[in-house]
Design a protein around this nucleic acid. Structure first.
Lengths: 248, 248
DNA sequence: GTACTAAATTGATCCAGCTCATTTTAGTGC
DNA sequence: GCACTAAAATGAGCTGGATCAATTTAGTAC
């Protein structure tokens, strides 16, 4: 198994295009809630956006910062995390190109309730809240699409509350692996590879457990041939069985 | 303290007006996202609504039912809960007059992911999803108000995830009491009375713990004179201290 | 006031998962 | 290939909170 001797994760090479206008426009059109916008309007929205490039591990904003921007992932991955005073962290969401984050809410004096950090190098579009509000006002379909996504996220979030309250750690982790597989998985010689740097600590922060426990459970899954994993990467070999574990 | 010998909770007497058209219209105007609608439009929306009266403990819809309605609490209280196959339940939200529930999302084939049940006798307005979508399309301010509320709920929900993952039960319950006090509290001879039937089981389902543990913690709070409580009711005597406990 | 019932309290025991500490190993860079 | 480093694995011991079961009590109905 000498092929396990290097990260199977592909690193997005952003240097080349570095968020060109064309790429921005193309990606903007891919964002679910801009899809219905006519080409012309899209260009106008694009003009109001700023593109920023971040390298891996950079902080985009911190919880407590005043929330004046709505952001969209153009390329790369972003994770949203909340930190307690004691230094513990909770991983709230992992984002893909096309996902928005920040606060789409009107209330002016709002602050972010989470910290956004890149997990890979990434290109991020920012649009001022007031500008975005204007777009939503002019195109109700945009507002409704944002509402739909937010509602989905609320439901996911409530499901997670349910899991934290009722399921033992093993089931929670099995469920998380399946979910990540569905969202970030790519078929590969190793199985369904989760295209995302993913440490035991990340997993623990998602499952509400300790890194040690997450590690023990992953070891067990590995013994049972359900997954293959190395440092910061995981591939799923038997999704059906993981699903079964998470449910029963 | 002979006055503790009966529920201090006031029961909404709905029989009298029984959701008259006037009451409906008045309440509809109080709903945050209809506030901006011109009187005339409000009447039109009202025509598309159906009012239903429920007595205490009735189920409005069950998780898994197909989600074709958006609902608004006119009077009384509603709780949203999710149930596991093993019969455990998680309390997701407690609603007040003016709050909406159900699914504001477009996707036709959706089902409710939670069960809605009245906690007191209640009057509920229902509007078909397609009709509500139409209103949002015509009045973007409505869509944006719904989005704002949903975003707030998402943030609350994420905070709860954080608490479940990082705080011990005592702090979680202290926090829940403060929150409920802020939302449902009414000044009273006993202190800040939470105007809501609230059992130890409800509290446990909110905090992600067992009724026994919830009870032990409530006993301790009672010993420390932070709260006064009987069956299904709680009054807060020292909110500041509870807040301190929940934070530190 | 008395009887009744479901809620709440409380005790005793147990274990899933945490903590802390040590060892091993995957992946990188030379 | 070799050296280096941070991630992961793993062992040992401890504990917060669960579970189960018995007892008490608040509130209601008569």
């Amino acid at each position: 198994m000498s092929d396990k001797r290097e990260t199977p994760l592909s690193t997005p090479s952003l240097q080349e295009h570095h968020c060109t206008v064309d790429l921005r426009l193309e990606k903007l059109g891919m964002v679910p809630f801009f899809q219905d916008l006519p080409e012309e309007q899209l260009r106008e929205v694009n003009k109001k956006c700023t593109a920023n490039h971040y390298s891996k591990g950079e902080t985009i904003y911190r919880q407590g910062d005043s929330a004046t921007m709505l952001r969209v992932v153009v390329a790369g991955n972003v994770k949203l995390a909340a930190h307690t005073l004691e230094g513990e962290s909770v991983l709230l969401d992992m984002l893909q190109p096309g996902d928005f984050f920040g606060n789409p809410t009107a209330r002016g004096r709002d602050v972010y309730s989470e910290t956004a950090e890149t997990q890979t190098s990434a290109c991020i579009l920012s649009i001022r809240l007031s500008d975005f509000r204007e777009v939503m006002n002019r195109y109700p379909s945009v507002a409704m699409a944002v509402l739909d996504i937010t509602t989905d996220r609320l439901n996911e979030s409530r499901q997670r509350i349910q899991h934290l309250s009722t399921l033992p750690v093993t089931k929670r982790i099995a469920h998380i692996l399946v979910t990540l597989g569905n969202k970030f998985g790519e078929k590969d010689s190793r199985g369904l590879l989760i295209q995302l740097p993913l440490s035991r600590k990340d997993l623990a922060d998602m499952a509400g457990t300790s890194p040690a426990t997450a590690s023990r459970i992953m070891s067990q899954f590995q013994n049972d041939n359900l997954i293959t994993s190395g440092r910061q990467w995981v591939a799923i070999n038997n999704k059906a069985e993981l699903l079964r574990i998470s449910a029963k």
